[in-house]
C-alpha cells in the first residue's frame, strides 16, 4: 500500500520534502516555503483587494499552520490541495473576523488612484492605463463574494483544474464551474467600462 503511494506519486519533490518536514527538518520547511510562498501571497493579496500588509500576515499564518500541522498530513490528498485549503480557510476566516470587527464595504470600491495623473507621453499613458486596469480588476475581484473570489484565484494563480479546485474547496466540479461562471460574468459587468481599453491592450 505504501509502496503504491510512493511509486505513483507525481510530485516526488513535494512528497519527500513534506516527509522531511514531518521529521522536523527546518531546511525542508524553508524549501517548501520558498517554493509556494508567492502563490499563497498572491491569493491573499487579491483576496483582500491588494492589501499587502494583510497578505503578508496571511502568508505567514498559512505557513505557520502548515508547519505546525504537517505531522497530521497523511498524503491522502495532494500536498498542494492541502496547502490551498489552508490558504482558502485562512483567507475566509480572516474575512469573517474582519467583517465582525471592522466591517468592510462589500461593494465595488471606486477608490481614486494616483498613478501619475498628468502623464505626458502616449507610452506613459498606456502604462498608467494598464496599472489602472490591474487595480480595477483587483478591486473588482476583492468585491466578489468570497466563494466566487477564491475559486477564481485558485484557477488563475494556481492553475488548478476544476477537479483540483473542487478538492480544495470540498465541493463538486459542477459547483466550481458555476462559481467561476458567475464570477466572470460579474467581473465583466462591473468592469464593462474598461472593455475598450482591455481589448485594445495588446
Amino acid at each position: 500500500m505504501e509502496l503504491t503511494v510512493a511509486v505513483t506519486d507525481e510530485r516526488p519533490v513535494d512528497t519527500r520534502v513534506v516527509a522531511s518536514c514531518q521529521q522536523g527538518d527546518r531546511e525542508a520547511f524553508r524549501l517548501l516555503f520558498e517554493t509556494h510562498k508567492d502563490k499563497v501571497y498572491s491569493i491573499a493579496l487579491y483576496f483582500f483587494g491588494g492589501d499587502a500588509a494583510l497578505a503578508s500576515d496571511i502568508t505567514q499564518q498559512v505557513f505557520l499552520k502548515l508547519f505546525t500541522r504537517i505531522g497530521q498530513f497523511r498524503h491522502q490528498s495532494e500536498f498542494t490541495t492541502w496547502l490551498y485549503r489552508l490558504t482558502t480557510n485562512t483567507c475566509i476566516d480572516e474575512q469573517r473576523r474582519r467583517r465582525r470587527f471592522s466591517p468592510l464595504p462589500d461593494a465595488l470600491g471606486e477608490t481614486p488612484r494616483g498613478h501619475g495623473g498628468a502623464s505626458a507621453t502616449p507610452a506613459a499613458e498606456a502604462r498608467f492605463m494598464r496599472l489602472e486596469i490591474a487595480d480595477s480588476v483587483r478591486d473588482a475581484i476583492g468585491s466578489l463574494k468570497p466563494k466566487l473570489r477564491i475559486a477564481i484565484l485558485l484557477k488563475y494563480f494556481e492553475e488548478l483544474s476544476y477537479e483540483e479546485i473542487a478538492a480544495v474547496l470540498n465541493c463538486s466540479k459542477g459547483t466550481v464551474a458555476s462559481r467561476l461562471n458567475r464570477g466572470h460574468r460579474i467581473l465583466a459587468q462591473r468592469l464593462g467600462h474598461l472593455r475598450a481599453n482591455v481589448l485594445s491592450g495588446d
Binding site: V40, S42, Y46, S56, V137, I141, Y156, F157, L187, V198
Partner: peptide, 10 residues
C-alpha cells in the same frame, strides 16, 4: 480581465 493579473512576489 482575470488573466491580466500576475503572480506577485511575497
Amino acid at each position: 480581465l482575470v488573466e491580466s493579473l500576475t503572480t506577485q512576489a511575497a
